[in-house]
Design a protein around this nucleic acid. Sequence first.
DNA 1: GATCGTTCTATTTTT
DNA 2: TAGAACGATC
Length: 785
Amino acid sequence: MESTEFFDVLSQVSENAQNYLSVLNEEQFEAAVHEGSPLLILAGAGSGKTRVITTKIAYLIGERQIAPWKILALTFTKKAADEMRHRAINLEEQASQSKILTFHSFGAYFLRTNSKAAGVAENFTVYDDEDSLQLLIRANPRLTKNRASHYARLISLAKDYCLLPDDDLSEICGEDADFPKIYQNYQNRLRETGNVDFGDLILLPYLTLKNDDDVRSYFQNRFRAILVDEYQDTNVAQYLLLQELSGVREGSGNYVCVVGDDDQSIYKFRGAEIQNILTFEKKFPETKIIRLEKNYRSTAEILRVADDVIQNNFGRLGKTLVSQRGHGEKPVLTFFRDADEEALDVVGLIQKDVLLGGKLSSWAVLYRTNAQSLAFENAFMQSKIPYQVVGSLKFFEREEIKDTLSYLSLLANPRDEVAFRRIVNKPPRGIGNTSQEKIATLARSSVLFDTISSIPSMKIDFLAATEKIAPTLSKKASENAKSFVQLFESLKDFLLGEKSSEKSDENEENLPAFDFENENVEEKNDDEHFVWQRTGKLADAIWTVVNESGLLAHYRSFDEDNGTSKVENLIELANSAEPFDLSFDGLVSFLDHIELDRAQNDDGATERVTLITLHNTKGLEFDNVVMTGMENGLFPRDYKNQNEIEEERRLCYVGMTRAKNRLFLTACASRRLYGFTRHSERSIFLDEIDAENLKISSSNGQAWQVRNFLEAQHGKNGLSNSHFESAERFCVGTQIFHDDHGYGEIVKSTTTDSGEKKIFVQFENGEMKTFLPKYASHKLQVVEG
DNA sequence: GATCGTTCTATTTTT
DNA sequence: TAGAACGATC
């Protein structure tokens, strides 16, 4: 952009816009004020992309007279959406009327407002992965749990790729002929409930937009500017949704701006399609591409090392970060004997920093797999250093929370079989599996399909079915079943604002606690007297559920026996409903909020070290980053093809670029995995870094690792042939170790028809096996000496 | 429906 | 190895 243009724009905008535009660099500025064609912003790590998006939103509203409600900005996480919204509003107040949402909450909003067109229940709730799995098992009762979760994963992947049971699913499941049927059974059950799963939140809006001209033209008119964050991690379904919303298929002109970094695409395994960003300019004609390569986060030394690694990827759009921070310390690479030593040393490193005035919260320990956190947790615990493990134990996945939510879900939608099954006998009511089957059979036999739309409805829902079946059960179970149904009747009245049940005359005795007119519900909490303060809000209904369902008593005694704090969690859950109205709508929007907002409750107030998987670090930054377990087989994990390696390499790049000031890399010579300790060699990613750019050290007795590393640096030119080289090492007479078969000796070596080396190994346990080193090298190692 | 011993199986994960 | 999940048993 010519600088005259820069001043032209600046001279014509409001004072407010002058303020927020003048802090941008040239490329950021160009991106923020660009209009008239699709825009792809290639935003490197730490290049200020959120600033650009939020500025763009403010600029569109304040200077380009786009009505704020005509702007849609989509992100992946709730956290990112919240941050974007706050920052946009900070720049331009009216942005509060824009839709700045996660993809999934946009989907929920879409389905909520177009339930009929989309074929879902008006009061649908969202099934999370665990609920989906339960439904899958119901729909395919002969599957073992393991098989079922395998298929649940495939279904969610299929939906990410926008594939339905009738489509060609071979890309998803290969030759597995059972999958389409299993998927179909699941879909049928899901539609019977009227609910949706996470995949549906993208898939169903897309299908509705595609097939329903009215809905499509409404939405295309409604949103004139669409912005998408983290575009490199969008999946096929999200791409198709964007296509329909933008109107690009019809050649209409809604403004589309996507922001992303192909080097940070790390979610292939859950359907992210890097091709979306690589081919964006083809799919959206006349795309303008702007690169943001000025990095405001990391020192030049850190970026250099990150660049050494990422350079080795082929399928990239290409971009080189330039540090705006200047110089700092060289990243440190340290070799250890094993994971315990590694953890201990990291603790020492942090302790030393704290002594010098450093803060615990400026440190993050990154690892590839969750299991690796254990050694660190032990080490931190012993040294009494506070730490937090990001991503573990999520509040809304806890048993007691899900139980309560199931009561609420069933209240919202009595067709919800998963919720019904979960809580009908919890706490125990004597309604066991046999009775449940009777109820479910009755309910499911009442499903009717609309003759025109073929959308299913359920004439006798699960509550009605329970009422009908109740008289056939044993005396106790029958009574319990009746009061179970009564609980829901009363709650419904409660929500609809009827203070007392009309049919209370005969049931009064059974239902003493349903007197909602009564004063606060009194509860004993340990030895203290806990009183639920009536709020007049949805929280009252939730507390009533917890109390009247018997869950409270159930979990109180559980807590006493096990020293857990489930009751506390239940109180917290009820409290979290405080902002919601005591009404049916309030209930439904609370459930939406819960399902779609599962950000872990990290209280950032406490000073502590962060332990976190590499994947979870996306979007975060820390002064000091330790990347641990830089070993082949762990990071990168055992791999098959170049694409997978490239994704791991991007993950490495993401990890490194989280560091602002100091970066530490660690590798161990041996590691315990699945029960036995095995030798591990340093990560190929380490070899990709120029040794000149690192400070290299080792713990006691591990100097040989440093020597090996430096030696490899000298013969680096042939590195990409390492596979072949390793094949050459397997000659007759060599002692080897195989992960599955143990120690053995190569007794014979031949060449296959296709010209590949084949070795015959006599193992110590008597077995004789053949391998193709080219494919088996990840499990085979030469035993030295 | 609770408990105990045995068997199984090991990435990454937002919504 | 370790944790979860399963199945037999009371």
